[in-house]
């Protein structure tokens, strides 16, 4: 019997490796789930991209759910995501706030002018300091924040029509149901 132990150990190992192959083809292996989900969003106060003198804070947005989409003009994958947002942002039922991440404001403005602006409002985090509080580590990322200012959903990587239909929209609907 003990002679079979190495074989059984190997079966377990092979199962783990098989799982690894399956898991990696179904998930982005580099995505690190945020610990901030279902935690209050960090307090922030950031200037608006087109009116740098006006700041937007977490308090000023309380009261209804909203979406924060982290993007940047230097970010290649954001260019992939952009057409999807252009098409779908108005139909989401919540305001979409663009979060311009570590970007030259002028680059961001011309990028939006060129590709279109799907956002209801754009805030600029030129230094990237606030982004650390949000646990941002790349662009694009998308946060769904509820009326009480709690992060309810996070997407790492570009939004696609599939992701919006299968994950984001149900999450938004759930929010709208619980806060009539």
């Amino acid at each position: 019997m003990s002679r079979l132990l190495p074989f059984f150990a190997f079966v377990l190992l092979a199962a783990l490796l098989g799982f690894g192959i399956w898991w990696n083809s179904a998930h982005d292996p580099t995505a690190v789930p945020s610990p901030l989900i279902n935690k209050p969003a960090p307090a922030f106060a950031l200037p608006m991209l087109d009116q740098p003198t006006k700041t937007v804070s977490k308090e000023s947005l309380l009261g209804k759910p909203y979406l924060v989409n982290v993007f940047a003009s230097w970010c290649f994958a954001c260019g992939e995501e952009h057409p999807v947002l252009m098409e779908e942002s108005k139909g989401l039922g919540v305001p979409v706030i663009g979060y311009d991440y570590k970007d030259d404001p002028n680059d961001a403005k011309s990028w939006l002018a060129q590709h279109g602006n799907p956002y209801d409002m754009v805030i600029a985090d030129t230094s990237g300091h606030t982004a650390i509080d949000f646990g941002v580590y790349g662009a694009p990322e998308t946060f769904l924040i509820d009326a009480k200012g709690v992060i309810r959903y996070k997407r790492i990587g570009p939004l696609t029509s599939d992701v919006i239909a299968q994950q984001l929209k149900p999450a938004i609907e759930a929010l709208q149901k619980e806060a009539p």
Binding site: A26, D28, T30, F76, E80, G157, T160
Partner: peptide, 18 residues
């Protein structure tokens, strides 16, 4: 789906290294 995912990861990497 998996292929798309890989492409995306690749694109993100390019964005990052860029």
């Amino acid at each position: 789906m998996a292929k798309l995912l890989r492409t995306i990861v690749l694109l993100m990497l390019i964005a990052i290294t860029g």
